[in-house]
Nucleic acid binder design. Structure first.
Length: 551
RNA sequence: GGCCUGUUGGUGAAGUGGUUUAACACAUCGCCCUCUCAAGGCGACAUUCACGGGUCCGAAUCCCGUACAGGCUACCA
């Protein structure tokens, strides 16, 4: 039996005409330096922060070079597939504005000339190449059972030998054509393995864009390329897809660096040009003083949807991702406040090779800064968008009080050093609820400080309303009135004066304004009281004060 | 067990043999400003770059070894 006949026996009805596909997917017509790269997740659940970072880097590298960024779904493991997994990935990318040029756009649709972009739909392509390899004598069927493989493994472990299907452990490699024919005839299940030409004693150097040259022993393991269900393994699918889709740069997680020798070997043996590689370190999390990989299972912040739910602006997440991607970005951005991420040039050499801890605090800080420089109207719109999805009641209140809310968000905003108090949109309600009667009506806990005697408080409020309140005062006049009020009741008009002679006064102007603040909002900490009073207006102020005094 | 990778402060990190008494940012603490906050201003925070050797006039930077951490070693990706 010839190799050709063997191939027909193993893959009847499958073509081995690889030229067909080579012609079908021609070179891309792009600039010489254009980067063609891809995000290639498995649809096994939500998108992990580390994956999002990788996707972000891929998108950025492609954009910077006028290249192509595409989405390829790696669903060759049917067991791990998750319902609506593809939609989930697409939604997450959309939520963070990582746009794809080609690839899956829904569970069933896709765009681009190099598809299908879902691996399970590429079965025929892989099988054509597998058949071709068998014909060339570069691949062979393996009939070993899981048990046999496990046995070999145990023997290897006991003897402290390298583990794997190689050399004399590669039993099926030595099967004669007759033996194979007999086994196939008997209906024994088989998989297809790649016939590795490598030797473990040979050293090879592989260049990684982030890590530089890495030295490995050559691969000598006969890896599985086609599983018993007829689908390829990751390694084989990677080689075929990235060749056919003309990927120039493979950017992926660093769990793949150890597979580099086998990937390069396969590319070379198939006669394909291997792509450039860049391996990204994982994002870590600290637990009990130890670093570990940020985990989908244990860490809610690992899920990309977490940030969407929190209401962290997309732009802020991107800013943080960019600081993770390129260590020099933060400083660049600091010096170029008026520029955007698009103006920054991504550099593979500036990607950290060590896995850093994921710093949620820093993300919140970036977010806080970002929100502080937005226009009040933008804050309103973004907060409303967030609330419509995650807090319907708050959304309703915002909608009913649009002008008011915008004015509220405008307090100490749009100035050189804006107020920075919202780190995300889910944070806002907690800080401003008291400004809305809808939320304020059931208040019963007032955070009074030094002055907390009901009678004294009532005295201050009454005098303020009777004698000092005016809705036409500017800020200085307003504050001067509070000083007068303080003086009249035996409080120091200036804090300094009080500090110099604490025995002469009951307290100082700050204590009095605290009373005015707490009786109005129930809270001891609020933005500028003058601004708040101006916004609430006389009726509401008097109403709240009178209600307070009656209780 | 084997093969890879990484290791600079509480955190992210700059740094590629000599103006580094180790940048910058986040966090923390202190002071100032201040009607409370949020900010803002100023300052403190690694005599030392995992550890041990070596090369060199000189090392966080180069070499060797050790330790620790992570990854891979599946018909999972």
């Amino acid at each position: 039996m010839t190799n050709k006949e063997l191939a027909d026996l193993l893959l009847p009805g499958v073509s081995s005409d690889i030229e067909y596909y080579e012609k079908k997917y021609p070179e891309r017509n792009l600039d010489k330096n254009a980067i063609v790269t891809r995000f290639a997740p498995s649809p096994t659940g939500f998108v992990h922060m580390g994956s999002l970072l990788t996707a972000f880097i891929e998108r950025k590298a492609a954009k910077d070079s006028n290249g192509i960024f595409y989405l390829r779904i790696e669903d060759t493991d049917q067991k791990r597939k998750v319902e609506n997994g593809i939609e989930g990935i697409i939604d997450d990318l959309k939520n963070f504005e990582i746009e794809i040029d080609e690839g899956a756009i829904s569970e069933t649709e896709e765009v681009g000339q190099y598809g299908p972009y879902v691996q399970s739909k590429r079965k025929e392509i892989y099988q054509t190449y597998v058949k071709y390899l068998i014909e060339q004598g570069l691949a062979y069927p393996c009939f070993c059972s899981h048990e046999e493989i496990e046995q070999t493994r145990q023997i290897q472990e006991k003897r402290k030998q390298r583990i794997g299907y190689y050399g004399r452990f590669a039993k099926c490699r030595r099967l004669t054509m007759d033996e194979i024919a007999q086994k196939v005839k008997n209906g024994e299940p088989y998989i297809i393995r790649f016939k590795s030409p490598g030797s473990f004693d040979n050293k090879i150097k592989i260049h990684d864009l982030i890590r530089g040259d890495i030295e490995f022993p050559e691969n000598d393991i006969d890896d599985v390329i086609m599983k018993s269900d007829g689908l390829p393994t990751y390694h084989f699918a990677h080689v075929i897809d990235d060749h056919l889709m003309h990927t120039t740069h493979v950017i992926r997680g660093d769990e793949w660096v150890s597979s580099l020798p086998k990937h390069i070997q396969m590319f070379k043996l198939m006669g394909f040009e291997p792509p450039k590689y860049a391996h990204i370190s994982p994002i870590m999390k600290e637990e009990d003083g130890k670093k570990r990989k940020l985990s989908k299972r244990k860490d809610p912040e690992a899920a990309v949807s977490f940030y969407h739910e929190k209401g962290i602006p997309v732009e802020a997440v991107k800013l943080y991702l960019m600081t993770l991607a390129n260590t020099n970005f933060e400083q660049w951005y600091d010096c170029n406040k008026d520029k955007t991420i698009d103006d920054f040039k991504f550099d593979f050499k500036k990607v950290s090779a060590s896995g850093g801890l994921f710093d949620v605090t820093k993300l919140y800080n970036i977010s806080k800064n970002y929100i502080s420089y937005l226009k009040a109207e933008d804050v309103y719109n973004m907060a409303l968008t967030w609330a419509c999805e995650y807090d319907k009641q708050f959304a309703q209140v915002l909608e009913n009080n649009k002008e008011f809310a915008i004015n509220l968000f405008n307090i100490e905003r749009e100035q050189k050093k804006p107020r920075k108090d919202y780190s995300c949109f889910s944070d806002i309600k907690n800080q401003i609820w008291y400004m809305f009667d809808e939320f304020y009506k059931d208040v019963d806990n007032y955070e009074f400080q030094l002055i907390n005697d009901k009678e004294e408080i009532n005295k201050i409020l009454k005098l303020y309303m009777d004698k000092y309140y005016s809705n036409s005062d500017d800020k200085d006049a307003w504050f001067n009135k509070i000083k007068e009020l303080s003086g009249e009741l035996g409080y120091a008009k200036e804090v300094k004066e009080y500090k110099n002679n604490p025995d002469m006064y009951k307290g100082h102007v700050g204590d009095v304004s605290t009373v005015l603040r707490v009786a109005l909002t129930s809270k001891s900490t609020t933005p500028d009281l003058y601004e708040i009073m101006k916004l609430l207006g006389k009726d509401k102020i008097f109403d709240r004060y009178n209600k307070f005094m009656k209780n």
